[in-house]
Amino acid sequence: MKSSRRNFLKIAGITALGVGARPAIDTIAAVGGRGPTEPEPILKQNEKALTAKQWAMVVDTRKIKSEKDVAPLYEACHKIHNVPDMPIKRHEIKWIWPEQFHHAFPDLHSEFLSEKIHHTTFPVLCNHCENPPCVRVCPTKATFKRESDGVVVMDYHRCIGCRFCLAACPYGARSFNFFDPREHIKEINLKFARRTKGVVEKCNFCVERLAEGIEPACVEASKGILTFGDLYDPESEVRKLIAENFTIRRKIHLGTSPAVYYIV
C-alpha cells in the first residue's frame, strides 16, 4: 500500500514537471520553422514607410543658442509618447532630455572648456547602438534590435521588469516605471501605448511614425538641430553631415557604437 502510494506520487510529480516544461520545449522546437500546414504570416508595410539599414541621428549643437531652441523637441517627444511626469525625481521617466557637456560626455570633460560648450545643453537619448549591451542582457528578448532598421525597441508586454537593461546601458537612457504612470500623463495620446507599472521604457526613434512615413517627432520639432537618416546610405543627410563635420559620440570606447552623432 505504502509503496504504491509512493509510486503514484512519483508519477504525478514527473507528470507535473512534464506539463510545466511544455512551453519551453515548444519554444525551442518552434525555432527554425513552423508546421507544414501553417502559412507564413505576411506583414504588409505601409507604402510610404521610411526604411533604412541603420537609423541614425546627428545633433548639430552649433545651432543650439539657448534652452528655448531645444525645449520644444523634448516636449514633442514626451507628449506624443505618453511619457508621464512623475512627482518624485528618482522615479523620473525620460526619453530625450538636456544634459550639460560634462554629464553627456563625462570621459571628454576637461577643466578648461570653451565658454560656449560649457553653457550649451546637449539633447541626450537612447543611442540605438549598433552593438547594444541592453539587448545582450535582456532575459526575455523584451528589448531587441530590429533587424530591418537597427532601432532598439521595447516590448512592454513581455518585459518582466528585472532592470538588467538599466544596469547595462552606459548612457542612462532607460527608465523604469516605479509606479503606475497612467495617472501622471497630462494629455493622453490615444494613438500611442501607455505603459503599466513595473516595465522599462525608452526612446524608440518614433518607429510608429517611421511606419507611416514621417520623421521622428523630436526631429520635426527641432528646426534643423536634429537630422535623421540612414547611416549606411552614403547619400543620406546624416552621412553628408558626418562627412562634412567633425562629430563625436558618447562613450565610444565601450564598443557600443552609438548611432547618435554630435557636431560641436
Binding site: 512551453p23 518585459c159 521588469g161
Partner: peptide, 13 residues
C-alpha cells in the same frame, strides 16, 4: 521584479 507575474517569460522566451 517589476512584473513578477511574468517571471516565467524567462522560460517562455
Amino acid at each position: 521584479l517589476g512584473q513578477p507575474t511574468r517571471a516565467l517569460n524567462v522560460l517562455l522566451y
